[in-house]
Design a binder for these strands. Structure first.
Length: 113
DNA sequence: GGATTGACGGGAG
DNA sequence: ACTCCCGCCAATC
């Protein structure tokens, strides 16, 4: 019987491509949670896959990775790290406001597809 | 090939 | 708001 390839290089990229495409859909000035991105990509419950993917993006990626935050409306990066500050800088430039606690009001800035 | 590790999430207490 | 716990699963030890 022909064996069903489980994790060949080709089909490994399918979920990743769906996630990429979804992140690319988040409009300026809006944020989406990892779980939301996963669900929109047709991969409910796979929030961690979104996080892993974004973590592996090359520096020059044009994907709007900064528009993805966790379900609490906060960045999952260390705010003091270069990428953490970059994320906030980019979001603020798009008009996203941060509370003193560092969280974002998802009711106002959350992406509603 | 088992155990650990996460840019996560939701529920319970 | 916070801790603990469990489900999730590809990558890495």
């Amino acid at each position: 019987m022909p064996r069903r390839p489980q994790t060949t290089p080709r089909n490994r990229d399918v979920p990743q491509e769906r996630i990429r495409a979804t992140v690319d859909c988040i409009p300026e000035g809006r944020v989406a949670s990892y779980g939301q991105v996963a669900a929109e990509a047709g991969l409910p419950g796979r929030a961690r896959l979104v996080g892993r993917l974004l973590g592996e993006l090359a520096d020059g990626s044009r994907l709007p990775w900064h528009r993805v935050v966790n379900a609490a409306g906060k960045s999952s990066l260390d705010p003091a790290s270069p990428s953490g500050r970059e994320q906030r800088r980019r979001l603020e430039r798009e008009g996203v406001e941060f509370r003193a606690s560092g969280s974002i009001d998802l009711a106002r800035f959350g992406w509603r597809p």
